[in-house]
């Protein structure tokens, strides 16, 4: 092991380790401080934020959150964000798992081309899509609503989900599918084929095998893919900014509206920022290890 060089007689203080912890703590502080300042600022009054002194000790106030949460727009946008992110996640998982299953377990003409073309376009950013999509978006009137795709939600007077939400769900799913297929493909390769073969011997067809045998044992793969898809869909700004209307804005779009040249309302802005980062950070607490696994899978497993 690499640490042999540092192991010394037991009673001495392991200075090398102490040094490592010091570096780690400094890094953790640098990483956390900006986030903590955001959260702290969201509990400050505008007077305190604008005052000449940096009040590290202050009387926390709920007033920013009161204003945010009492604004009916926030609830509308939050539900819009949730509807879009959760739908995109579910759609990505189901369609991605089916595609990964076909690619990993079946041989058929065109398999290679299909696999590679998805990989080649997987880095296309949302902004590129936004530029070209807006044209037919407006021409087709998708920004308003597709008749028949209206579901009433008990939030404000918004009608969910209309064309712009359906559109965003499809784009977020498309943007996430290549990565999800690849991730689930990797998971499937670790699932022994014996289970499926047994199912087939029992007379199950491909669909029964997939939904009754493969689907249930893929849960850990699904968890990782779901986190990544949710993260993209929940955080995405550019497409949502261009395509959503006043009822279907997502929270990142709402947050961006706090930026203005004359007098930024810092407290509320930081409050909205804090509310946006809560769901992804909760996921981080539960699954940091799996998230790193997913992020590094491309590089490390090879």
């Amino acid at each position: 092991m690499s640490n042999i060089a540092y192991s010394k007689p037991k009673r001495k203080i392991p200075w090398a380790d102490v040094g490592r912890y010091v570096v780690l703590v400094v890094l953790a502080v640098v990483t956390l401080l900006p986030i903590l300042i955001m959260v702290a600022t969201s509990f400050k009054l505008q007077v305190d934020i604008l005052s000449k002194d940096m009040n590290w000790i202050f009387k926390p106030t709920w007033s920013n959150y009161d204003k945010i949460l009492n604004d009916s727009k926030f609830l509308i946008y939050m539900s819009s964000s949730l509807v879009i992110a959760i739908s995109a996640t579910l759609l990505t998982l189901i369609t991605g798992a089916m595609a990964a299953f076909a690619l990993a377990r079946m041989k058929f003409p065109g398999r290679k081309i299909i696999a590679q073309s998805t990989l080649i376009i997987r880095m296309i950013p949302p902004a590129v899509l936004a530029v070209t999509v807006v044209g037919f978006w407006i021409t087709w009137g998708l920004g308003d609503a597709i008749p028949g795709f209206r579901v009433r939600f008990p939030v404000g007077r918004a009608e969910f989900f209309d064309g712009s939400q359906l559109g965003l769900i499809i784009f977020y799913t498309a943007l996430n599918l290549p990565f999800t297929i690849w991730l689930l493909f990797g998971f499937l390769q670790q699932v022994p084929r014996e289970l499926e073969e047994a199912a087939i011997v029992d007379g199950a067809n491909a669909f029964q095998t997939f939904f009754q045998v493969i689907f249930p044992i893929m849960s850990s793969g699904f968890a990782v893919s779901a986190i990544f898809t949710f993260r993209i869909a929940w955080n995405e700004f550019i497409l949502a900014f261009m395509l959503s209307n006043r009822f279907t804005k997502t929270l990142p779009v709402y947050a961006s509206e706090f930026i203005s040249d004359e007098g930024v309302v810092w407290g509320q802005m930081m409050g909205v920022g804090t509310l946006i980062v809560i769901p992804p950070l909760i996921l981080t607490f539960f699954a940091a290890k799996q998230i790193i696994g997913g992020m590094t899978a491309g590089a490390v497993k090879g």
């Binding site: 780690l24 890094l27 953790a28 990483t31 956390l32 900006p34 986030i35 300042i37 955001m38 600022t41 993260r231 929940w234 955080n235 700004f237 990142p252 947050a255 961006s256 706090f258 930026i259 810092w266 802005m269 930081m270 920022g273 946006i276 980062v277 992804p280 950070l281 996921l283 981080t284 607490f285 940091a288 290890k289 998230i291 790193i292 992020m295």
Partner: peptide, 22 residues
């Protein structure tokens, strides 16, 4: 520590922008 280091990667880019803007 790993949990802490993943955090900036999970935060919405728009929020990263707002934080640094402040």
């Amino acid at each position: 520590f790993r949990t802490i280091f993943v955090m900036p990667l999970m935060i919405a880019p728009i929020v990263v922008g707002l934080i640094w803007r402040y």
